[in-house]
Design a protein around this nucleic acid. Sequence first.
DNA 1: CTTGACCCTGTAGTTACTACAGACCTTACC
DNA 2: GGTAAGGTCTGTAGTAACTACAGGGTCAAG
Lengths: 142, 142
Amino acid sequence: MRDQNPARGLQRAELARRTGANLETVRYYEKVGLLPPPPRTASGYRSYDKAHERRLSFVLRGRELGFSLDEVRALLRLVDERDQPCAEASRLAATHLADVRTKIADLRRMEGVLKRVVAQCGDGTRPDCPLIETLFRETTVE
Amino acid sequence: MRDQNPARGLQRAELARRTGANLETVRYYEKVGLLPPPPRTASGYRSYDKAHERRLSFVLRGRELGFSLDEVRALLRLVDERDQPCAEASRLAATHLADVRTKIADLRRMEGVLKRVVAQCGDGTRPDCPLIETLFRETTVE
DNA sequence: CTTGACCCTGTAGTTACTACAGACCTTACC
DNA sequence: GGTAAGGTCTGTAGTAACTACAGGGTCAAG
């Protein structure tokens, strides 16, 4: 069994397990500057603490809300450098919310067309496949 | 003025313009096998015809419906090789429709959380930013 | 002292393009 | 005939956000 003593810090796999991140993602986030490089043991192993865990969770939750890594980086900068980050953070969130709504609208348009053609295809015995005809003939957007 | 005589075929830029594709995308689709390599002029220029235009439009419309290039490739194979492609095509579309609906559900969850936090942030004068607190504290998914 | 489980690094692969750089060709105009 | 502007060609590198090795080092238990 590996060392679980909190005074010695978490290994990468433990941090990944505790946060739900993929093992490789932890190293990736360090590489792109979203996680600070942790101290190393004598043999070069990374040793994380609670602050790393907190920060990694922040990034992962940001990702769950659909923020890009650049947006998460901006949010982290606000956390680190600003006293009153709410106005800027809220602006970022509002912009992102608009992006999300645009994506939903796009997907709903796709859903509508797909639903229609799947219904028209029925049991798939038609010689003129409505899906294929749609792709050849129609514009899918007005 | 360039040659517009249909007997001589379309150049790449013309094909792109007529279909709405990006110029580089045309070559890319050829490279990944979605468009057949067109005949070349004596000096090596690609020369497209109506069949290419039709096929490229098919790919672009498939993309507008959110199909991956692999899925579009599969649909094109059905068009080329099968007499009765509708059953298989419809299955592909139904699978893709389910994917689209999953994405919509994900985005709606994001939208709900973002809408809430943006509302809570209000004019951005709060010292405890609801967005940042959410990212640090909550799980965004139940 | 070996086995197995972890850790390290750097790099390559993924999707679907997009954007060059450097070279060649064609056309219009003078 | 010359030249400048615009097309075209190729291959390659860049984008986002990871993910997955390969080839090596380390560490603890039996």
